[in-house]
Simulated assay, not measured.
Amino acid sequence: MKHLSLAIIFVAALHNANSVHLGSRIVGGEESAPGAYPWQVFVEGVANGQAISGCGGTIISDRHVLTAAQCFDGAQIARMYFGSFNITASDEPNRVLMETSDFTIHPDFNSVYDNDIAVITLPRALELNEFIAVANLPSGADIESDFIGTEGLLAGWGSPDGTNSLSPTLRFTRNTVIEKVDCEAHYGVDWMGPGKLCIETQDLNGPCYGDAGSGLIRESDKTIIGTFSFLDTRGCLDGFAVGFIRVGQLVDWINGIVGAKNIK
């Protein structure tokens, strides 16, 4: 099966809380507490002054956010909400809003979503605190690990009911990384290259539209295992495995950008 577009799902109702549809089935798990996942960022792709996509992202340094390449199809600017819980609220005390045109898409991102990853460089350093914090990139043995059997935490504002409406508040779910062969049988061997991994969603908790780019986090040490990239064309309510980009496979490329674009 092919993937469904996950990023180009920006909802006009995003800034109108009354229009956000919350179904009885919570695709994204549970509502978080404010500040529970301070590395999580809401990312909008903006073109001609209008938001054209809604995605997730992960803070990887005080100057950088990791997200999905697909989030910037046609975008000129990245707009980011840091320290946010309710993205429809206009008076969040811990929110920091930034915009930049400095984002780098992996040069080998392609039509089968290989290397679906991008790094956003911020215009100024974030002030890190209990609501805005950094997640760790894989290092050592984790760079080559396939993380089979590892439970990861995923947070985001993606659709809670399988529609094109985002959740106004941050939600989270925990899912386990499964054997790649289980995904190859579903998506095809050609689709599941070495830079991808999958998680189970049999309990109908998992990422959905608007969660592209959100990080799968190993909570014990706040390490980002993968970034959400694709799901089955039948949607996110049927319990099919969903796919991520393996961050460890691309950590050298990521570190090259982070090192080159730090404040001098």
Rank of each mutant, 00 (worst) to 15 (best):
residue 193 G to C: 10
residue 220 S to Q: 11
residue 157 W to C: 10
residue 160 P to Q: 00
residue 219 E to C: 00
residue 226 G to K: 04
residue 178 I to E: 10
residue 186 H to I: 04
residue 209 Y to M: 13
residue 179 E to W: 10
residue 198 C to D: 08
residue 202 Q to C: 02
residue 183 C to A: 02
residue 187 Y to T: 06
residue 217 I to W: 06
residue 206 G to F: 04
residue 181 V to I: 07
residue 150 T to L: 08
residue 178 I to R: 14
residue 156 G to M: 03
residue 215 G to E: 07
residue 228 F to P: 01
residue 193 G to V: 14
residue 207 P to L: 06
residue 151 E to H: 09
residue 165 S to G: 12
residue 170 L to V: 08
residue 225 I to W: 01
residue 218 R to D: 07
residue 157 W to T: 10
residue 211 D to M: 02
residue 166 L to Q: 15
residue 218 R to I: 14
residue 141 A to Y: 05
residue 148 I to F: 12
residue 208 C to R: 00
residue 194 P to K: 14
residue 149 G to Y: 09
residue 142 D to R: 13
residue 153 L to V: 07
residue 217 I to C: 00
residue 196 K to R: 15
residue 165 S to K: 13
residue 213 G to T: 07
residue 152 G to Y: 00
residue 198 C to Y: 09
residue 224 I to L: 08
residue 192 M to D: 13
residue 220 S to L: 07
residue 159 S to V: 03
residue 176 T to I: 11
residue 181 V to Y: 10
residue 220 S to A: 13
residue 232 D to W: 10
residue 210 G to K: 09
residue 199 I to L: 10
residue 139 S to Y: 11
residue 200 E to G: 13
residue 152 G to I: 11
residue 171 R to N: 12
residue 142 D to T: 06
residue 164 N to V: 09
residue 156 G to H: 08
residue 188 G to C: 10
residue 230 F to S: 15
residue 189 V to Q: 13
residue 214 S to N: 05
residue 234 R to W: 09
residue 157 W to Y: 12
residue 224 I to G: 03
residue 201 T to S: 11
residue 193 G to Q: 15
residue 141 A to E: 12
residue 170 L to D: 12
residue 216 L to R: 06
residue 187 Y to L: 05
residue 202 Q to P: 01
residue 235 G to K: 12
residue 176 T to P: 04
residue 157 W to F: 11
residue 149 G to E: 09
residue 174 R to Y: 02
residue 159 S to R: 02
residue 197 L to W: 06
residue 158 G to M: 06
residue 194 P to W: 12
residue 206 G to W: 04
residue 219 E to D: 10
residue 192 M to E: 13
residue 170 L to A: 10
residue 212 A to K: 07
residue 223 T to G: 02
residue 198 C to S: 07
residue 172 F to S: 03
residue 209 Y to D: 08
residue 169 T to I: 11
residue 180 K to Y: 04
residue 140 G to D: 11
residue 204 L to A: 04
residue 190 D to A: 15
residue 181 V to E: 07
residue 198 C to E: 06
residue 188 G to Y: 11
residue 148 I to A: 05
residue 178 I to D: 03
residue 179 E to I: 01
residue 154 L to V: 14
residue 140 G to L: 10
residue 184 E to N: 11
residue 234 R to K: 13
residue 233 T to G: 08
residue 218 R to M: 10
residue 203 D to W: 02
residue 160 P to F: 00
residue 211 D to L: 04
residue 175 N to V: 12
residue 227 T to K: 03
residue 194 P to L: 13
residue 231 L to V: 05
residue 152 G to W: 00
residue 223 T to Y: 06
residue 203 D to M: 02
residue 172 F to Y: 15
residue 233 T to C: 03
residue 159 S to D: 06
residue 144 E to F: 12
residue 228 F to T: 05
residue 149 G to C: 09
residue 148 I to P: 07
residue 211 D to H: 01
residue 166 L to F: 14
residue 230 F to E: 09
residue 186 H to M: 02
residue 206 G to Q: 02
residue 172 F to T: 03
residue 160 P to H: 03
residue 167 S to R: 11
residue 229 S to Y: 04
residue 211 D to C: 05
residue 214 S to R: 01
residue 200 E to P: 03
residue 175 N to M: 01
residue 187 Y to Q: 04
residue 164 N to T: 13
residue 208 C to A: 03
residue 193 G to E: 13
residue 145 S to N: 15
residue 177 V to D: 01
residue 205 N to S: 12
residue 233 T to M: 14
residue 216 L to S: 00
residue 212 A to H: 07
residue 168 P to Q: 05
residue 143 I to S: 00
residue 200 E to S: 15
residue 143 I to C: 00
residue 182 D to I: 01
